[in-house]
């Protein structure tokens, strides 16, 4: 099993195999996202309480899901890299960070835009929001540590270890923030229970989520391709006798 795996963990081989997948993902994400957006923006019914503003949800919720999923992905690829030392997984993890930052930022931004009409304020120190903000900062930390080691391979392990510690810490942070929030419930007009979701809203929500997932895979594969080509250039530049 591992041997089989090792064969495809070779970055260059991986690229040739994955090229058709990438193209399919690109087309699929475009299709699913456009269908999902049409559903979300025009065909789905407005909420009986929130009116049209509920449509922000179709961006906000999938983006939030994606940012959590991407962190899990980074965490597991880093673990695989640390244990089996497949360079491919490090590249996958490193390239996911930027996408994760963008998704997290989107979730935070749309969340606060959504918060204004529903809660009456752009930001509430609610447990979920706070822990998401912390997630955003951990993402930024990963990004920063990547940049500060850009000239040496020392950064590879540093990055993977930070992702590892961050992965262990995120549940603790979430737990602590929840704890803090239950003791100090801020006086907000936060509605408990959320919106009642019916199937007409659920379809575009899932369409958007799947579209985002495909988009993530597509962008990831493209950036892995770019990264490998960059490495190739560097390799030929540094070759002893050229």
């Amino acid at each position: 099993m591992l041997k089989y795996f090792h064969k495809y963990a070779n970055p260059v081989k991986f690229l040739t195999i994955v090229l058709p997948v990438r193209k399919i993902m690109g087309i699929l994400s475009l299709g699913v996202l456009s269908v999902g957006l049409i559903f979300a923006l025009f065909l789905s019914p407005p909420d009986y309480q929130q009116k049209e503003t509920v449509r922000i949800m179709y961006i906000h919720v999938p983006a939030a899901w994606m940012s959590l999923m991407i962190y899990a992905f980074i965490f597991f690829s880093s673990v695989v890299f640390l244990v089996w030392k497949f360079p491919l997984f490090l590249i996958l993890a490193k390239e996911s960070v930027t996408i994760g930052v963008i998704f997290t930022f989107t979730a935070l931004l749309t969340g606060s835009l959504w918060g204004k009409p529903t809660w009456g304020t752009y930001w509430v120190w609610d447990a979920r929001l706070t822990s998401f903000l912390v997630l955003f900062f951990i993402y930024l930390g990963l990004k920063l540590i990547m940049e500060s080691f850009s000239y040496s391979s020392k950064g590879d392990y540093t990055f993977a270890y930070l992702a590892l510690i961050g992965g262990f810490n995120l549940p603790i942070i979430k737990f602590s923030v929840d704890w803090w929030n239950t003791l100090h419930q801020p006086a907000s007009i936060l509605r408990t229970g959320g919106i009642s979701i019916n199937s007409e809203m659920l379809i575009p929500l899932f369409l958007m989520a799947i579209g985002f997932l495909f988009l993530f895979i597509y962008i990831l594969l493209v950036s892995v391709d770019i990264n490998l080509k960059k490495r190739k250039i560097m390799y030929y530049k540094n070759k002893p006798n050229n």
């Binding site: 912390v134 900062f137 951990i138 810490n169 603790i172 942070i173 803090w180």
Partner: peptide
């Protein structure tokens, strides 16, 4: 960099 990285990890402790 060190300060930026460590604050998120220190949050649970301070809470």
């Amino acid at each position: 960099l060190l300060i930026f990285l460590s604050i998120p990890f220190f949050l649970p402790i301070i809470i």
